[in-house]
């Protein structure tokens, strides 16, 4: 039964959602999001829910693609998938009740050669996107505190 469920899961992953490129099969789990979610939806509200997080992620991805420090890392990546999985991940962690369907942080960033300074550049772009969405600074920091430990899986050099 369990094996059947796993096979079913993998089968769904194997056919990519519209607009996305195929990806090697992997086990889906909320734990892949790399952080435990907040217990209530206070932060989700502070980020203006689904619409707010969607704007933040779109803005973040656009800023990263324009940022000369890290734009190379995003070249030839599936941006449609990145936006979708980031929105799921943010929603899951912020207590928005979503399921995270993406890969774990280590696999997702494997062989990208990401350095600490690259992660800092991304954090600065995320701060700018959250500021543009008028997310209160203390709420921004509570979210960043969840993301910060991911440096151990993301940074590989």
């Amino acid at each position: 039964m369990l094996i059947a469920a796993v096979l079913l899961l993998q089968a769904t992953v194997a056919t990519p959602p519209p607009g996305e490129e195929p990806i090697a099969p992997y086990m889906q789990a909320d734990a892949n999001a790399g952080a435990k979610p907040f217990a209530n939806d206070q932060l989700w509200q502070a980020f203006h829910g689904s619409a707010g997080v969607s704007r933040i992620v779109n803005d973040l991805v656009a800023r990263n693609q324009k940022d000369p420090r890290i734009s190379d890392i995003f070249r030839n990546q599936d941006m449609v998938r990145l936006r979708r999985t980031l929105k799921e991940q943010f929603c899951y962690i912020l207590g928005g009740g979503c399921t995270y369907t993406g890969r774990d942080m280590k696999t997702a960033h494997k062989d990208m050669g990401i350095q600490q300074a690259d992660m800092v550049a991304l954090v600065e772009n995320l701060q700018a996107a959250m500021r543009a969405e008028h997310v209160v600074f203390a709420a921004q920091n509570r979210f960043l505190a969840k993301l910060a430990p991911m440096h151990r899986d993301v940074v590989e050099r």
Binding site: Q115, Q116, A117, V120, A121, V123, E124, R157
Partner: peptide, 9 residues
Amino acid sequence: GDRRWGGKL
């Protein structure tokens, strides 16, 4: 090339 300036918040 892996050495670089800056990068702290």
